Simulated scan of single mutants.
Amino acid sequence: MPERNIEFGAYGAQGVKGHELVARRLDSLAGFIASPVTTRRGLTARLRYLTSSPRQLTAARAAGLTISARTIKAQLEGTRRPSARTLRQIHTAYQQVRRQNVARYLLARLNRQGRGTRVEFHPVNQSAVDRPRQRVVEYRTLNVRKWERIVAAWEAGDDAGLDTAWVDEVVVDLGSQWGQYEYVTNIGFAA
């Protein structure tokens, strides 16, 4: 079922795959550190988060953090500046650990004891499409009650799995028009 819009944008329509916007929204709900990792404040905050407890440090090591405890201490004190590769490693490990820490809480908030969460679908922008080729696409809302696969794929950082889960669990519930909402300009929901 997914990938029906193989030539999306051929006539000028503008939009993004829905699962990418869902991942961005879940990231914003996770409450990541706003300061970039390249700043002293952002680096220090991420390192403190990753080393705040032995459990956090173990999770960071499992997420790919390979720098030594001595190097971490030197970077926290400001006596050593990490390389670009190390900064990417720290940021990636931070994102994975943060997602693991908030996934269960976020899932409970989205499921709301079986009541689900209302999701808003904003259709693609067709302002650049010639008038005869424009579709009639409307703003839609849907109450989503099954978030398990979506949150699990987001937590694992599995883009293909998130795409499949989003289409299979949510988009097909829009009925026969589901293909019109594979690409959208915005996906809105709160938790």
Score class of each variant (00 low, 15 high):
5 N>D: 12
7 E>G: 00
8 F>W: 10
8 F>N: 14
9 G>I: 11
11 Y>M: 09
11 Y>R: 02
11 Y>W: 07
12 G>Q: 01
14 Q>C: 05
14 Q>R: 11
15 G>K: 05
16 V>C: 11
16 V>R: 13
18 G>D: 04
18 G>F: 10
19 H>K: 05
19 H>Y: 15
21 L>F: 09
22 V>S: 05
22 V>H: 12
23 A>P: 14
23 A>W: 12
25 R>W: 01
25 R>M: 04
28 S>F: 09
29 L>V: 07
32 F>S: 11
33 I>N: 09
33 I>C: 12
33 I>F: 14
33 I>A: 10
34 A>K: 13
36 P>I: 08
39 T>M: 11
40 R>G: 02
41 R>C: 02
44 T>L: 11
46 R>G: 09
46 R>V: 07
47 L>A: 06
50 L>F: 05
50 L>M: 06
51 T>H: 12
51 T>S: 15
54 P>S: 03
54 P>W: 00
54 P>F: 00
60 A>W: 08
63 A>V: 12
64 G>C: 07
68 S>H: 11
68 S>P: 04
71 T>V: 11
78 G>H: 05
80 R>C: 08
81 R>H: 08
82 P>F: 10
83 S>G: 15
85 R>H: 12
85 R>F: 10
88 R>V: 12
89 Q>D: 13
92 T>K: 12
95 Q>A: 11
96 Q>K: 14
97 V>E: 05
98 R>H: 05
99 R>V: 01
99 R>P: 01
99 R>S: 01
99 R>L: 03
100 Q>P: 00
100 Q>R: 10
101 N>L: 04
102 V>I: 11
104 R>F: 00
105 Y>M: 11
108 A>Y: 04
111 N>Y: 00
112 R>Y: 06
114 G>V: 09
115 R>A: 15
116 G>R: 00
116 G>N: 03
117 T>M: 03
118 R>C: 09
120 E>P: 00
124 V>M: 04
125 N>Y: 06
126 Q>M: 02
128 A>F: 08
129 V>Q: 05
129 V>N: 04
129 V>S: 08
132 P>A: 03
132 P>N: 09
132 P>T: 07
133 R>K: 13
134 Q>H: 01
135 R>I: 04
135 R>Y: 08
135 R>E: 12
136 V>E: 15
137 V>R: 12
139 Y>M: 13
139 Y>D: 15
140 R>A: 11
142 L>Y: 08
144 V>F: 02
145 R>G: 08
145 R>L: 09
145 R>E: 02
146 K>G: 06
146 K>A: 14
149 R>W: 04
149 R>T: 14
150 I>Q: 08
151 V>L: 12
151 V>D: 03
153 A>V: 04
153 A>R: 04
153 A>P: 10
154 W>S: 00
155 E>Y: 00
156 A>P: 14
156 A>N: 09
157 G>D: 12
157 G>N: 10
158 D>R: 03
158 D>G: 02
158 D>E: 06
159 D>S: 14
161 G>W: 07
163 D>V: 00
165 A>G: 06
166 W>E: 01
166 W>M: 15
169 E>S: 14
169 E>K: 03
170 V>F: 04
170 V>H: 10
174 L>D: 02
178 W>V: 08
179 G>V: 10
180 Q>K: 08
180 Q>W: 08
182 E>G: 04
183 Y>K: 01
184 V>W: 03
184 V>M: 08
187 I>Y: 07
189 F>M: 09
190 A>D: 15
191 A>R: 13
